[in-house]
Amino acid sequence: EETGVRVELAEEDDGEKIAIKLWLRIEDIKKLKGKYKDNEAIEFSFDLERDVPEDVAQEMVESGYVCEGDHKTMAKAIKDRVSLIKRK
Rank of each mutant, 00 (worst) to 15 (best):
E1D: 10
E2D: 13
T3I: 00
T3A: 07
G4R: 03
G4S: 08
V5L: 08
V5T: 06
V5I: 13
V5G: 00
R6P: 03
R6F: 01
R6N: 08
R6A: 07
R6I: 07
V7F: 10
V7L: 09
V7K: 04
E8W: 04
E8D: 13
E8T: 13
E8P: 05
L9R: 03
L9N: 04
L9T: 06
L9P: 06
A10M: 07
A10K: 08
A10R: 06
A10D: 08
A10F: 05
A10N: 08
A10P: 04
A10I: 08
E11W: 00
E11C: 05
E11L: 01
E11S: 05
E11N: 07
E11I: 01
E11G: 05
E11A: 03
E12K: 09
D13P: 10
D13E: 12
D13S: 07
D14F: 05
D14H: 06
D14C: 09
G15F: 05
G15W: 03
G15T: 07
G15L: 05
E16R: 12
E16V: 09
E16H: 11
E16F: 07
E16L: 07
K17E: 10
K17F: 01
K17P: 03
K17W: 02
I18E: 14
I18R: 15
I18N: 14
I18P: 14
I18K: 15
I18M: 15
A19R: 15
A19H: 13
A19M: 14
A19Q: 14
I20E: 02
I20C: 11
I20A: 05
I20M: 10
K21E: 01
K21H: 05
K21G: 02
K21S: 03
K21I: 02
L22M: 15
L22R: 07
L22Y: 04
L22I: 06
L22H: 06
W23I: 15
W23H: 15
W23Y: 14
W23R: 15
W23M: 15
L24D: 08
L24V: 08
L24Y: 06
R25L: 13
R25F: 12
R25N: 10
R25S: 07
R25D: 09
R25A: 04
I26V: 10
I26A: 13
I26P: 14
I26Y: 11
I26T: 12
E27I: 15
D28G: 07
D28R: 01
D28H: 07
D28I: 03
D28W: 02
I29Q: 14
I29R: 15
I29T: 15
I29M: 14
K30D: 11
K30M: 10
K30F: 03
K30Q: 12
K31T: 06
K31H: 10
K31E: 10
L32F: 08
L32V: 07
L32C: 07
L32A: 06
K33C: 10
K33Q: 11
G34K: 09
G34M: 01
G34V: 02
G34T: 04
K35M: 09
K35S: 12
K35N: 15
Y36H: 09
Y36F: 04
K37T: 12
K37M: 09
K37S: 11
K37Q: 11
K37V: 08
D38W: 08
D38L: 13
D38T: 14
D38V: 13
N39E: 10
N39A: 09
E40I: 09
E40Y: 14
E40F: 14
E40P: 09
E40V: 11
E40Q: 15
A41Q: 14
A41G: 08
A41S: 12
A41M: 14
A41L: 13
A41I: 15
I42G: 00
I42V: 08
I42N: 02
I42D: 00
I42Y: 08
I42A: 03
I42K: 03
E43N: 11
E43P: 14
E43Y: 04
F44G: 01
F44C: 03
S45A: 11
S45E: 15
S45R: 11
F46Y: 14
F46I: 02
F46R: 02
F46G: 01
D47G: 01
D47A: 00
D47Y: 01
D47E: 05
D47C: 03
D47I: 01
L48S: 03
L48K: 04
L48P: 08
L48G: 03
L48T: 08
E49P: 01
E49K: 08
E49A: 12
E49W: 06
E49H: 07
R50K: 14
R50N: 14
D51Y: 01
D51R: 00
D51W: 03
D51F: 01
D51H: 00
P53L: 01
P53K: 04
P53C: 04
P53R: 01
P53Q: 00
E54M: 04
E54Q: 05
E54P: 00
E54K: 00
E54W: 06
D55A: 13
D55V: 13
D55F: 06
D55Y: 09
D55N: 12
V56I: 12
V56D: 02
V56M: 05
A57V: 15
A57R: 02
A57D: 01
Q58T: 12
Q58N: 09
E59R: 14
E59T: 13
E59S: 13
M60H: 01
M60S: 02
V61P: 00
V61Y: 01
V61L: 02
V61Q: 03
E62S: 12
E62M: 10
E62D: 15
E62K: 14
S63V: 06
S63I: 07
S63T: 10
S63N: 13
S63P: 01
G64Q: 03
G64Y: 02
Y65D: 09
Y65M: 14
Y65T: 12
V66Y: 02
V66F: 07
C67F: 12
C67D: 15
C67P: 04
C67N: 13
C67L: 04
E68C: 05
E68H: 07
E68F: 03
E68S: 13
E68I: 07
G69P: 07
G69R: 12
D70M: 07
D70K: 02
D70T: 01
D70G: 02
H71K: 15
H71S: 13
H71E: 11
H71I: 15
H71P: 01
H71F: 14
K72S: 14
K72C: 10
T73S: 08
M74F: 12
M74N: 00
M74E: 04
M74H: 03
M74I: 15
A75Y: 00
A75F: 03
K76M: 09
K76R: 12
K76P: 01
A77F: 08
A77V: 09
A77S: 02
I78N: 02
K79T: 09
K79I: 03
K79Q: 12
D80Q: 11
D80R: 07
D80C: 01
D80H: 11
D80Y: 05
D80L: 00
D80E: 14
D80N: 09
R81M: 06
R81E: 10
R81T: 09
V82Y: 02
V82A: 01
V82S: 02
V82F: 01
V82I: 13
S83H: 10
S83P: 06
L84A: 13
L84D: 11
I85P: 05
I85E: 05
K86S: 07
K86V: 02
K86F: 00
K86T: 09
R87V: 03
R87M: 05
